[in-house]
Each structure stands twice: as structure tokens, then as C-alpha cells.
């Protein structure tokens, strides 16, 4: 069909008896940035967890390059080219920066590329090179987020999924993170981005979806959603809509 890198069809996901994702369908085209927006508890994180294999869907299909991956385990999903930077970063805080990066290239497919990948990570995040032998837990919040992204791209992903990368960061780091996402996308990495920082996310996104209580309620290009009065009211607020 078209160049859908990732396609989600009719996905239902449950936590025990509680359904978190209802009949969600979306697609991510190769080379784009797709933003996934919505309030807390809307099901964004659950959706990412299901794509990366941490959770498994009750119904529906996830296709990556046309191949189903809903039965795969997380360690298999990352090996076929989907990296997930989870919410809260979840670095190996007792390991050094370099050890975190080495483990980023753990999938067999990516091990031979380790030297190149490390160079790429260092050129994108020069601050990490200086912190090479420091424990990941001793980095600042912004640096930790950079390390989390760097660790994910060590696996040479085709699709990078980022869960709230700007959460809790200072405005300076937020700006840096968005610039990085933009730069990575220029290096042919497709990005699926979950963000609370709706305005910034929509500015760089080619495509965006809005989730509400587990259902997709809106979809369109980043600019369309940015101009949509409902989106402005619900997620961006007065401050932005006046500009």
C-alpha cells in the first residue's frame, strides 16, 4: 500500500479488567514525526507499551513494515527496529553513561554498528561524551533525558517512540530536546512522540492524533490541529491561542 512504517488497526488493550485503549487505529509514515496527544490517562503510554511489546493487545493488529508484531516480546521488537524511550526515562542509574550506551546497542543486529552508533550519539549529545564514566543516576534531568534518547538510538531504530521526553525539564532543555527530535528526523528516523507540551509537539509534527479516554477523537496534520479551536481550547490554552 502506501509507505506506512507502522500501522495500528482496531487495537483494544486492557489492564486486567480495565480497558485503557479502545479500537485505536493510526498509522505512522516513514520519515515523519507523528505526535500523540491527550490528557493524562488517555491511553497514550499504554499504546506505546503495546507497540513495544511490554503489553499485549486483546484485539487488533500492529503492523511494522506490513508485518504483524503484536505477539513479539520487547527484546524482539527493539531488534526489528522500534526503540521505545519510556516515560520517566528509566535509565540504568547505577551504570555509567558509556555502559548505558553499550547496552543500547545490545540487539544482535546493532552490535556490529556499535562504533558508528556511539559516534553518532556523541555528535548529537556532546555533553554525554564528557560524562562518559559518570553514573547515569548522577546526571541532571535534562542530561538523563538525552542519555535515554541516545541509548535508544544506539539500537539504530527506524521508529523511535518517545514518551513525554520534555516532562519535568527546564525550558532550555525542552527546547534542546525538540531540536534533537527534529535533527534525528532529518537523519531519517521516524518518530512517534507522546507529549504534554502540545504546542511544541504540533509545531514539529507532520501528523498528529488526539486520544481521549482510550479513543482517538481527532487526527490530522500538525498545522491543522494547531489551528483547530477545540485543540487550542483543550490542550494549548489561552496563552498560545492568542498568538
Amino acid at each position: 500500500m502506501e509507505n506506512h512504517l507502522l500501522e495500528v488497526k482496531g487495537l483494544d488493550v486492557l489492564y486486567g479488567d480495565v480497558q485503557a485503549v479502545w479500537d485505536v487505529s493510526l498509522h505512522v509514515d516513514e520519515g515523519t514525526i507523528v505526535a500523540l496527544l491527550g490528557a493524562n490517562g488517555a491511553g497514550k503510554t499504554t499504546l506505546l507499551k503495546t507497540i513495544s511489546g511490554i503489553m499485549h493487545p486483546k484485539r487488533g493488529e500492529i503492523l511494522f513494515w506490513g508485518k504483524p508484531l503484536s505477539k513479539l516480546k520487547p527484546q524482539e521488537v527493539v531488534d526489528i527496529g522500534i526503540s521505545h524511550v519510556p516515560e520517566g526515562r528509566r535509565l540504568f542509574s547505577k551504570l555509567t553513561v558509556l555502559e548505558n550506551l553499550k547496552l543500547g546497542a545490545y540487539p544482535p543486529r546493532t552490535r556490529p554498528l556499535f562504533a558508528q552508533s556511539l559516534e553518532r550519539a556523541y555528535s548529537l549529545f556532546p555533553v554525554l561524551k564528557a560524562r562518559n564514566d559518570q553514573k547515569a543516576g548522577s546526571l541532571s534531568g535534562g542530561e538523563q533525558q538525552m542519555l535515554a534518547i541516545a541509548r535508544a538510538i544506539m539500537a539504530c531504530p527506524n521508529l523511535l517512540m518517545l514518551d513525554e521526553p520534555s516532562l519535568g525539564l527546564s525550558p532550555l532543555f525542552v527546547k534542546a530536546i525538540f531540536e534533537l527530535i527534529y535533527a534525528l528526523n532529518h537523519q531519517k528516523v521516524t518518530v512517534l512522540l507522546v507529549e504534554q507540551n502540545v504546542h511544541q509537539a504540533l509545531k514539529i509534527a507532520h501528523q498528529a492524533y488526539v486520544l481521549k479516554t482510550g479513543k482517538i477523537v481527532m487526527g490530522g496534520s500538525g498545522d491543522e490541529l494547531l489551528a483547530d479551536p477545540e485543540v487550542q481550547k483543550a490542550y494549548i490554552g489561552e496563552r498560545w491561542s492568542k498568538r
Binding site: G53, P74, V78, S83, H84, F92, T110
Partner: peptide, 10 residues
């Protein structure tokens, strides 16, 4: 330290 995170890196 973190088994879930470990599976995410492969």
C-alpha cells in the same frame, strides 16, 4: 536494576 527497561534495550 530495571527488568522492563532492560527488555526495551533488547
Amino acid at each position: 536494576e530495571d527488568m522492563v527497561s532492560a527488555t526495551l534495550v533488547g
